[in-house]
Design a protein around this nucleic acid. Structure first.
Lengths: 212, 212
DNA sequence: GTATAATTCAAACGTATGTTTGAATTCTGG
DNA sequence: CCAGAATTCAAACATACGTTTGAATTATAC
């Protein structure tokens, strides 16, 4: 069961993501990446122009599709409600499922993807921060607007903070879930994703409904 | 209103913490720190042995007292219960109040402290991670044990994940709360801390009580 | 006041970094 | 088969980094 031989560009992207996930983005040098990927040192500049270009490409490759799937899932819930206020649990599931499922599916990156994504959400690197804000901004906006509809009567400031409490909690748990597995290469079984989605949804729904 | 002239060692600690909070720990060089603190380049090695020694000292100075205050607050709640199961809201408050209060009190570091602490909790730097685990380990242990007593009947695995959802949420909100203010130098009023504590406690209590 | 210790300072050291270069090699279309 | 483009490669570039050094300066104790 040999891995398919990827071309230089893709091998750099994969190796860079794995090393970024393990050691943090700014702690990984171009030399370490090219050595681990078994390509020449100059290949990074040849294909991505610069180290920053590589970082941007690695982030974009994961953040863009994920945020897009979240937006689609949220929009599907809104459409399904047919004008009525959307169900809270469906909103929460649409928000969290794409990330949890991909982080637990080895074929889609699994723990390495999850750990890398968590790094991105907390990294001080300005390129990473810009890309994350750019793509997840629309997700957060939709998520918040739909929560306002689904939790009527709650002061919007309270709801805004609670949404961020949930986002931060989800990211933190994804970190715990992937921190060991990402480096050891141990496989996560996709069937577990449902369990974690349910856990998060019931937790979040209760926390959002209660009055202060 | 001139600032008190601190000696070299303390000025390095203060400036390093501020720059770490703003740009991330590994993104700040010894040269940037000494230039901003207006001390000689060699002062860092003279007082702290190495850059790693400085990082350790900066982290230790904040993490040790904070974790100690959390442990004391949690122990006080346990003692106050006189053997009975401690009240959930008091546990949650003991856990979150020390951090929120200090992050909103300009005299104790305020937003710079808060942002630095959040950086520490997510930083890939091994020295930081070791110090954080060392000091906050006992906090987490106590917090979890008391939650088990206060929320009977919940599967411990569920409770463990919910605790981490709360921890991550708190850290994320502290980041939002301090991200702008830390760099702009704007003051936070201490009187707001109570509001944020209440917000977190009611949110967390509801999220912990509900059955899956 | 003077000797001793503590601190500050400018300069340099060795190393690691991101990037560039130009030749060598491999791939591609006719 | 071959010209031209695409890619790979070893080597070097300039810069920034953490650290060390030894002299200069300041503070401390007797």
């Amino acid at each position: 069961m040999k891995a398919i031989e990827l071309d230089t560009r893709d091998r750099i992207l994969d190796v860079a993501e794995r090393l970024f996930a393990e050691h943090g983005i700014d702690a990984v040098s171009v030399r370490k990446i090219t050595a681990a990927a078994k390509v020449n040192l100059a290949a990074v500049n040849y294909y991505f122009g610069s180290k920053d270009g590589l970082i941007g490409a690695v982030v974009e490759r994961r953040v863009a599709p994920l945020s897009q799937r979240q937006v689609q899932a949220l929009d599907a819930v809104r459409k399904g409600g047919k004008g009525r206020a959307p169900r809270l649990d469906l909103i929460l599931e649409a928000f969290c499922r794409p990330m949890i499922e991909q982080a637990m599916d080895p074929k889609a990156g699994g723990a390495v993807f999850g750990r890398f994504m968590v790094r991105c959400l907390a990294d001080p690197n300005p390129i990473v921060g810009k890309k994350v804000a750019e793509h997840f901004g629309s997700v957060g906006k939709r998520f918040y607007e739909m929560l306002v509809q689904a939790v009527p009567g709650m002061p919007q400031e309270d709801l805004w903070w609670r949404m961020h409490l949930l986002m931060g909690g989800l990211h933190h748990c994804l970190m715990i879930l992937t921190v060991h597995k990402a480096s050891s290469g141990r496989r996560c079984m996709k069937m577990d994703a449902d369990k974690y989605v349910k856990r998060f949804v019931s937790f979040a729904a209760a926390a959002l409904k209660v009055r202060i």
